[in-house]
Nucleic acid binder design. Structure first.
Lengths: 146, 146
DNA sequence: CCTAGATAGTTCGCATGCGAAATAAATCGA
DNA sequence: TCGATTTATTTCGCATGCGAACTATCTAGG
């Protein structure tokens, strides 16, 4: 109703994400992997050997973002970077055995998060939330997208 | 339904927040202030002279977070830090005239963001979203809160 | 062919915020 | 009253990701 209430959505979203990241980091402790890292693992689990740019687009990361992510995950021996045989500029990403194991671990770790994320809300309500979050990508386009 | 769909909430939330931040930064260009900075301005607009810790709690920032935020906003001449007369450890935060002006600007800037955040959703749906975001703070507690 | 643009990644400097450890001031208990 | 603990804030090193500028490669057009 009042514009004041809607104002708060910006802050609510910011805070909610910070909470989630912090909570996941605390759970994670010395094992496993961040949410974004898990995202890349899941992508590679479905389509091993994607281009960095493709992965970045799927994760909504710009070039520096995906580049850094790949650096860190390569250093952690979760993925490997190999030159594309057909394009000297491009690199393709591949899971390492450790990365493949981390997928299973991450999926397990997400079970608790999922439970908390949906706790106290009906399926219909979660659908609304998911739709709202999904369409953020359309409603807040990047650069010259539209 | 399928656990797969709920898995995605983690990523949807992460991406949504990144989108929003990026979009706001792009709009912001060379003027105005980030969402979190606006949050602090609004707090001071209602209760000038809060303790740093209080502000941090309201913004869901830990000590290093609020400390850095205050540093940057002090450097930008939006707020002032003054020692608490009754407690030598504590600092209270006050708006500068520039900060007071920035509040109005920020509120204006949020109008467009609000419109986009709620665009295409009914009031009832936005209520669900707001409730979901709000209760994240309960469902993902910090440290030893509970 | 060869040059002009487009494209894939990287690097740099910055902003944000974290946890852990440090500092300084306040308070509590013997 | 004085040492031990608690509390407010800062500092440090790190992770994440951005925009801008750069590098290297590819692709078109002449």
């Amino acid at each position: 109703m009042s514009p004041r209430r809607e104002h708060r959505l910006v802050f609510l979203l910011t805070v909610a994400q910070r909470r989630l990241q912090r909570w996941m980091a605390a759970q994670r402790q010395n094992s496993s992997v961040t949410a974004t890292q898990a995202g890349l693992l899941f992508i590679l689990g479905q389509r091993d050997g994607v281009l960095m740019g493709e992965a970045g687009a799927a994760l909504d990361l710009g070039p520096p973002g995906i580049s850094g992510l790949v650096d860190r995950m390569t250093a952690a021996n979760l993925i490997k970077r190999r030159a594309d045989p057909d394009d000297g500029r491009a690199w393709r990403l591949w899971l390492t055995p450790a990365g493949r194991e981390a997928i299973a671990q991450s999926k397990a770790g997400l079970v608790e998060v999922n439970a908390r994320l949906t706790d106290g809300f009906t399926d219909a309500e979660i659908d609304v939330v998911a739709r709202w979050l999904t369409t953020m990508q359309t409603r807040f386009p990047r650069g010259e997208d539209e």
